[in-house]
Design a protein around this nucleic acid. Structure first.
Lengths: 343, 343
DNA sequence: ATGAAAGCGCTAACAT
DNA sequence: ATGTTAGCGCTTTCAT
């Protein structure tokens, strides 16, 4: 190869090389790169040409070291394969990219010890900000984050004591509202299909508790480990049908902590010729893209992931630009969406 | 707040502070951090204590500047909300994290001009390696990448002229194999539902071409822009049914460039009481997690995203560790999975 | 509007 | 096994 790559060929082009070729000081090139408007057009032209000729690529590593601004934001998600996070993550990235920041990704695997290790690695990169999923962190993590003085946004939850900033919604309230809504529709028989993610579990518990308090009705419950899947929904309904008394007096609602599980329930129902919602009702969570297009269309709880991501990124950017010190908490709420899978 | 954050309080703790407190040279602390086995236990202990006392967090920014190794790998995906990439992305991240590398995320939005801009920003971070999606890049991008001398792995495709390393499968062959398989099963009436992503389109074109050459049969085709969705599948089948002659002599296969679209077709079929595969057959692509659990179970083309991601990361890491200069191409292949949605 | 000096915090290379 | 020296490539700060 004839390239002048850093690996094999000559030393990489530096800002000083560009400056020499352009006949200006290195500082002028730096200004051209960072605040072009402070450089006069004739000078800009010289610099531009020199950059083109040399094929110079700005080195933000060195700049960051001096200025202690990396323009890096670390985003920690539990699992990239869980589509519930995709919209928020996409929105975060979009917003940050537009503002000239880049995303350093961390995957915590739903474990706060793993998150703690991750955070150490992340902090060693000196990100300008950190966006976390959830409010469940080790004490060490919280202390380190505070000590580092990095702006932090926690997402997907509300908590009494955020590390710094927070955007999310109340999972307790979501569970409660679903229970009340279904009780209000006249349902008295419930099944709950959940995966063991911490927030989903809290919704489920809140749901059960509300039922116990306000309905006094029976509840079949099944919990899985890992990611929500169609298979769980199918399996869950099969098991439920076996557990159900044959003299079941009224229709049962299957409440799922994820739309994906709910879609599995609908699928299993279709495969058995069970009519939804007449014989069996189904409630999802998330209002993912497909929820409006299942058959029958899925009643669910809408979470606006895009809004959450956008809000999180915006809060962070505002803090990064201005100096508004106020810790802020934003409740983006949720919305019950009644479609055809429930009465 | 009483924290010693970089923002408000005192200056951040540096490696030299730790060294002073431990009564050793800065270099010894650096060794402790990077190759602890080269430091004797008594010294290690002193350093460990000093780090704990000061709450020191390693600054890899400065280290990277000196050593020109960032331990950063940039990963560019078209869209994080497209679940087809999730498994591969997850596998990449896992493999890299285990090896002490971190992922810098880039989202190209399926546009190679956008990718080009992204690449400039990415290169300014001096990543040790780059993993790209697809082989469609601007000439400028290819040149810059080569000039930078960064190891590059392109994924999700095979191409005559990779930039550096490559792992994927042949979309032409996939389209052809699907066509031949279905012709072999006796199908003569075809519909094709596609989204306009470049690789899906190539599969679709190859499929159509093979049909024209080897089957001479009719083909209904519909293409959407953007991400694959359930809604497209439902809409696509509705439109197809209207377009179909009422005296249709045999069953039709709906071939989709994504499992998600195929799931939509199954959903629409179920909602209309159309029996699959007797009255209508459906073929997906991807073998995503749900494909084995739809009703009926979806025949599809399996792509092992986890394997692809793992392979890509491993190739990169090998290059980063050893100095094997050989450009390598890996064909991970694909597999036709016959389930119940086709005969 | 441009330049000169100094140094961000670490590690490669070379001692000891 | 540990220490010393020098400097990575940029930007802050202070001149001009």
């Amino acid at each position: 190869m004839s390239s002048e790559g850093k690996g094999q060929g000559r030393a990489a082009v530096t800002l000083s090389d560009v400056a020499r070729l352009a006949g200006v000081a290195p500082m002028t090139v730096s200004r051209y790169l960072n605040q072009p408007e402070t450089v006069r057009e004739p000078t800009r032209l010289k610099v531009r040409r020199a950059i083109e000729q040399t094929g110079y690529v700005h080195n933000r590593l060195a700049g960051a070291l001096k200025s202690s601004r990396t323009r890096l934001v670390a985003v920690v998600v539990p699992m990239v394969t869980n589509p519930i996070f995709s919209d928020a993550f996409q929105a975060i990235n979009e917003r940050l990219a537009k503002a000239g920041y880049q995303v350093l990704l961390g995957v915590s695997g739903y474990q706060c010890e793993q998150e703690q290790e991750l955070l150490e690695v992340i902090l060693s990169r000196r990100p300008d900000g950190i966006i976390l999923t959830g409010t469940l962190h080790t004490t060490t993590s919280r202390n380190r984050l505070r000590a580092a003085g990095v702006p932090v946004v926690e997402t997907w939850d509300l908590s009494a004591e955020p590390i710094d900033m927070l955007v999310g919604f109340s999972h307790e309230q979501a569970g409660r509202d679903v229970a009340r809504h279904l009780l209000g529709q006249g349902y008295r028989h419930f099944a709950l299909l959940a995966v063991d993610d911490p927030r989903g579990l809290r919704r489920a518990d809140s749901f059960s508790k509300t039922l116990a308090e306000e309905g006094g009705t029976d509840l079949y419950r099944r919990t899985w480990q890992g990611l929500p899947s169609l298979a769980q929904g199918r399996e869950g309904l099969s098991a439920l049908l076996q557990a159900l008394p044959s003299d079941q007096p009224g229709p049962c609602v299957v409440v799922c902590t994820s739309d994906t599980i709910a879609q599995g329930v609908l699928t299993e129902a279709a495969s058995r010729g069970i009519r939804v919602p007449e014989q069996l009702a189904v409630m999802g969570f998330g209002d993912m893209a497909f929820a409006a297009h299942t058959f029958p269309a899925l009643s669910t709880v809408r979470i606006d992931g895009t809004l959450m991501g956008h809000t999180a990124a915006t809060m962070l950017l505002e803090r990064l630009q201005g100096d508004s010190v106020a810790s802020k908490t934003v409740d983006i709420g949720f919305e019950l969406v009644k479609r055809e899978s429930t009465i």
